[in-house]
Amino acid sequence: RLYEREDHKGLMMELSEDCPSIQDRFHLSEIRSLHVLEGCWVLYELPNYRGRQYLLRPQEYRRCQDWGAMDAKAGSLRRV
Rank of each mutant, 00 (worst) to 15 (best):
L2T: 05
L2D: 01
E4Q: 11
E4R: 05
E4C: 08
E4A: 11
E4M: 14
R5G: 12
R5M: 15
D7P: 02
D7Q: 08
D7S: 08
H8R: 12
H8Y: 15
K9D: 09
G10C: 01
G10L: 00
L11S: 12
L11H: 11
L11G: 12
L11V: 13
L11C: 13
M12Q: 04
M12N: 12
M12Y: 13
M12A: 12
M13N: 09
E14G: 06
E14K: 12
L15T: 07
L15S: 02
S16R: 13
S16E: 15
E17Q: 12
E17R: 07
E17D: 14
D18I: 03
D18G: 01
C19R: 01
C19W: 02
P20T: 07
P20K: 11
P20L: 05
S21Q: 05
S21Y: 03
S21N: 15
S21R: 07
I22L: 13
I22F: 06
I22P: 00
Q23V: 13
Q23G: 12
Q23Y: 10
D24G: 11
D24A: 14
R25E: 13
R25T: 11
R25P: 03
F26A: 05
F26R: 01
H27D: 14
H27S: 13
H27P: 07
L28T: 05
L28W: 15
S29I: 07
E30S: 09
E30D: 07
E30Q: 09
I31M: 05
I31F: 03
R32I: 05
R32A: 08
R32W: 04
S33I: 06
L34E: 06
L37G: 03
L37T: 08
L37P: 02
L37V: 14
E38C: 09
G39H: 11
G39Y: 05
G39C: 06
C40L: 14
C40F: 13
C40D: 15
L43F: 04
Y44T: 00
Y44Q: 05
L46S: 14
P47K: 03
P47E: 11
P47Q: 08
N48W: 11
N48M: 12
Y49W: 06
Y49L: 01
R50P: 01
R50G: 15
R50T: 14
R50A: 13
R50W: 04
G51H: 03
G51Q: 06
R52A: 14
R52L: 10
R52D: 08
R52S: 09
R52V: 11
Q53G: 12
Q53N: 14
Y54E: 00
Y54P: 00
L55A: 12
L56K: 02
L56H: 00
L56R: 02
R57K: 11
R57M: 08
R57E: 13
P58D: 11
Q59M: 14
E60F: 06
E60W: 10
E60G: 12
Y61I: 02
Y61W: 00
R62N: 04
R63F: 05
R63K: 08
R63Q: 12
C64V: 05
C64N: 03
Q65V: 15
Q65S: 14
Q65M: 08
Q65F: 09
D66P: 02
W67H: 01
G68W: 03
A69F: 06
M70V: 14
D71I: 08
D71Y: 11
D71Q: 11
D71H: 10
A72P: 14
A72Q: 05
A72D: 06
K73V: 10
K73F: 07
A74D: 03
A74L: 07
G75D: 04
G75P: 02
L77I: 15
L77G: 03
L77V: 11
V80I: 08
